[in-house]
Structures are given as C-alpha cells and as structure tokens.
Amino acid sequence: MADRVSASITIGGTLPQSLLPDLTTLVQAEGLSTEWDGEPFTLSMFREGVPLELMAHEVAWGRFEHLETWCVEHGLPFTRWSGAYCGQWGAERVVFTGAGEVKSYAADEDDYILIGRCTVERLGSYEAILAHFAAGDFAVPPLRLMP
C-alpha cells in the first residue's frame, strides 16, 4: 500500500482546446478538486485565464505522476506541493517552468521553501541563495486555451 499525504498542483500555460478533455480525464483520475475536501473536478469548473489550482488529501507518495508527466510532455508549467510523511520524506515543492527539467525544493507544511546549511554552502553566495528562492517561488502563468 502507498504512503499518502495531502498535495496540491497549480497548472498554467497554453493548451490546445482539443486537449482539454484529456487534461480533465487526468485530473479526475487523480481525484482532484478545486478546494480542499471539495467536489471532484468537472469540466464545468474550468476557468480560462487563471492558473488551474487543484488539491487532494490521501495522495499516493504525494505525487500526481500521470498528470505531471502529461504536463511536461505538453509544456504546461506547474508547481506541486506535497506534505511530509513522517519518517519517510519531507514536504516539497516541485517546479516545472514549461521547459527544461522538473526541479524539487525542500518546503514546509505551509509551502514555504526551506534550505539547510549544505544548500547554502553549495549555492555559495547570497545572490545564488536569493535566486534559489526565486526559482522555487515560480509564479505559474494563467492557463489559456488555443484553437
């Protein structure tokens, strides 16, 4: 059985309208809602022009693997926060800017980026530390449909 925690994901970018049903199917398969303990997501809840914010409790390993992979394949930026599982892993924020690699940042239960001494030493300068925080605080753009 999978270890489960609360998690949320915010998705943005530009999506071909023809792929909206696929996105909806993936979101529904993950059991996501637009609010904590809310009704399951339906297409009628989609609002164009704002990032799509989704959440759920009891998420296996704190990841939305199929949805995240699909977003990467289609170049849709996202951030994901997942809570810690005592004795197994800490809370984290994952960032995908729409290109490049998916990056993970240590976070707390309130989704604040954290760094330890080893990260400070690796980054090496105050400017690099600020850049690290800025990258982790990536602002997901609005989700827009294109014909």
Rank of each mutant, 00 (worst) to 15 (best):
D111R: 14
W89D: 03
G98S: 09
V102D: 00
D110S: 11
A99G: 02
A84E: 15
V95N: 07
Q88D: 13
T97F: 09
S82G: 09
P77I: 12
Y85E: 12
C86D: 15
A107Y: 03
D111P: 00
V95W: 14
R93T: 14
T79F: 12
E101Y: 05
R93I: 15
F78W: 13
F78Q: 05
V94L: 10
A106C: 01
R80E: 10
D110A: 11
G98C: 09
E101M: 10
Y85N: 03
A91S: 12
P77A: 09
G87P: 08
F78S: 03
S104I: 02
F78E: 06
W81E: 11
C86V: 13
A99H: 14
I113N: 07
Y112C: 01
R93L: 07
W81D: 06
A84F: 08
E92Q: 12
Q88S: 14
W89G: 01
G100C: 01
P77S: 10
Q88V: 14
V94P: 00
G83M: 08
E109K: 01
Y112D: 08
E92D: 07
S82M: 15
A91K: 01
F96A: 05
E109Q: 10
D111V: 02
P77K: 09
W81V: 04
D111Y: 11
R80L: 14
L76C: 12
W89R: 05
W81M: 06
Y112M: 05
V95C: 08
A84Y: 11
A84M: 11
G98V: 08
D110F: 12
G98T: 06
G90F: 05
T97N: 06
I113E: 10
S82Q: 15
Y105A: 04
Y112E: 11
A84S: 13
P77R: 08
L76A: 10
S82W: 15
G98E: 12
D111A: 15
Y112L: 01
D110N: 13
C86A: 13
E101S: 04
G100I: 00
A107T: 01
A107N: 01
R80G: 00
V94H: 06
G87K: 12
D110M: 09
R93C: 04
I113T: 12
E109Y: 02
P77Q: 12
Y112F: 09
A91F: 05
W89H: 07
A84D: 10
C86H: 14
G100V: 02
E101H: 09
Y85K: 12
E92H: 07
W81L: 07
T79P: 08
V94M: 06
E109V: 01
L76G: 09
I113S: 05
A91V: 03
A91W: 06
Y105L: 03
G98R: 11
D111H: 12
R93E: 06
T97G: 04
Y85P: 00
Y112P: 00
S104F: 02
F96T: 04
F96C: 06
L76Q: 14
C86G: 11
A107H: 03
